[in-house]
Design a protein around this nucleic acid. Structure first.
Lengths: 332, 332
DNA sequence: GGCAGCAAGGTAAGCGCTTTCCTGGGAAAG
DNA sequence: CTTTCCCAGGAAAGCGCTTACCTTGCTGCC
């Protein structure tokens, strides 16, 4: 790999001059030398070593993102928003997939710190685990102490900049919608138990049940992905045959529920959560609770890249009901 | 940010010793010093500076991936496969989204080179543009000369390790399926004209038309995304009302086509391409040409991380017809 | 003519690590 | 009691850049 030294030697100048020309420094340089250096750069296909540069001007340039899995549509949307603002800012984005493994999440935070990222955004890691929460807080704290910026998406047990979707109200909206349609017995396909996303949404639905003086909904837990949603639907209907409506705590599972229902030929209302792109293309089109995922990502990245604020900034993002065709009144 | 120097000073040892302990070097160190250094590391929340480390042991550790857009399901799947093998190998993955901007693609290749990535995988950048192709080849060449490894997914005008899906045969399969069902007049919703993915798939379909002694299909160009697919369907049907089957060159556009047909209440066969996860959940479930996207990604990453081979390795990946419900014989 | 002032370029000191080579002190060997 | 080795540990030389600080040779002014 050609180095600055090679370029300088070839152009017959010092590395200082070569560096100044390459970086467009404000120091004046004669046109002649400039040409020679540029020619050398081209001849050698020289590209400055990013690590050496980073070390020399100790200024942080990349940003890190840690999510469950970029290929999951929920996080894909968030990531899209994140990337938009990061690249507008001319920054390289390093994406880390935790696959919901807390240990891996901690490792990644450390790794990103080691890579001197200017900021990091964490999404989807609200685990109900005090040990993990403490460890994470510690690492983030250390990172911030050294000048790093962090923003989280979703509720985390930590004070700091955050974008938090109103999952509880969203859950309420979902329940409310179903009860208002006349359903009395509703089932919930929940996500993993230890995620706050799950518990918050569930809390909202239970609140709606109380508001309508209905018994609490039947809950069955799944994994936030399509197939587990389908399986959970089967379990739910077997255990509670009188359920006439199902609230799935995300769209992927709702899609799975729809698939199962179609397979067994039952007509049951289904409401999803998130409003992912697929929602409008399944049949029946999925009624769901919309969260502006891409915007949330963008917002989080802006928070992370903006000047640090003395008091934590928490942006609450409202959820909104999107009525489509998968929910309807109970049939007699 | 605490440095190795800080750690060494606090532990009362030299940086050499501290470094050896931290890196688990084979050189023996007394247990006492080891404890002191480890305590210092913990107290200071020390994390080694990845850039300095990379500079010192000039060994490349990260890998780069340049794709159109990770949030596009097609690339999301590929990326998933890529990541799986990269992280198994303990490597950090840097993902770059080009949004199909050739200039950006070139910039990213340079950027990744600057970051000393051990390997890079490019997916979805087969543009029909000689100027671009030459520039890209040049940059990749320079990178490889300096010891970098590259693998591409899809056809690129360059010799080197590659994973190439058999788009042409896939196209043929799609056409064949439609003609065999009895369709005589078929339309094609194509992707961007300058992508080889588009042209290869199209070539296959045209070959099927010739094989069945049918006139060439009517082609209309779109953007590989759902909404452009819906719009293109409208255009196609307006221009050629007698079309009874549509081949969309990817699933996203097929989904758009389905949506448009449902909206206008027309019954027309639709076949997609790729077999993305959504395909089985739309109604009617989408008949499509499957490509093992995640495997392709994994394969490409393995090629890129394996020892360089003297002669380029090209892995051809066959396409396969998946029959579902969106294709049927023409109605009278 | 002498000196300040400036333009153009070079020298060299780091940035935070790793690692080679060296040193001092024992233990083993004679 | 020497001599030889080995072992734990340190000093210092880079890795490839950036940049503060010099040097040199002019121009312009009194």
């Amino acid at each position: 790999m050609a180095t600055l030294d090679d370029v300088a030697r070839r152009a017959g100048v010092s590395t200082a001059t070569a560096s100044r020309i390459i970086n467009g420094s404000s120091k004046p340089v004669s046109a002649q030398l400039r040409d020679r250096v540029e020619a050398a750069v081209a001849d050698l296909h020289y590209v400055p070593n990013a690590h050496a540069r980073q070390l020399a001007r100790s200024e942080r340039t990349a940003v890190g993102v840690v999510v469950h899995d970029v290929s999951d549509p929920y996080f894909a949307e968030i990531t899209r928003g994140l990337q938009r603002v990061a690249t507008t800012d001319g920054r390289l984005v390093i994406i880390c997939n935790t696959y919901r493994d807390p240990a891996r999440e901690l490792d990644y935070v450390e790794l990103l710190r080691a890579h001197q990222v200017a900021a990091m955004v964490l999404a989807g890691s609200g685990y109900h685990d005090p040990g993990f929460a403490r460890a994470l807080r510690g690492k983030l704290r250390a990172y911030e102490l050294s000048g790093g910026r962090v923003a989280v998406i979703g509720r985390h047990d930590r004070t700091g900049d955050a974008v938090v979707p109103d999952n509880e109200s969203g859950g309420f909206l979902a329940g409310e919608h179903l009860y208002a349609l006349g359903h009395r017995d509703i089932g919930v396909i929940a996500g993993p138990r230890n995620l706050t996303t799950t518990t918050d949404r569930l809390t909202g639905i239970r609140r709606a049940a109380r508001a309508h003086r209905r018994p609490p909904p039947k809950v069955v837990y799944a994994d936030f992905d399509r197939d587990s949603g389908a399986a959970a639907t089967a379990d739910l209907l077997a255990a509670h045959p009188r359920v006439t409506a199902i609230a799935a705590l995300n769209d992927s599972m709702a899609v799975g529920a729809l698939a199962h229902l179609r397979a067994v030929g039952r007509r049951v209302s289904v409401i999803g959560f998130d409003d992912m792109p697929i929602a409008r293309d399944v049949t029946p089109a999925l009624t769901t609770i919309r969260l502006p995922l891409a915007d949330m990502g963008a917002l989080a990245m802006s928070l992370a890249l903006s000047a640090p604020s003395p008091s934590p900034r928490v942006e609450r993002v409202p959820a909104e009901l999107v009525r489509r065709e998968s929910t309807f009144p109970p049939e007699e």
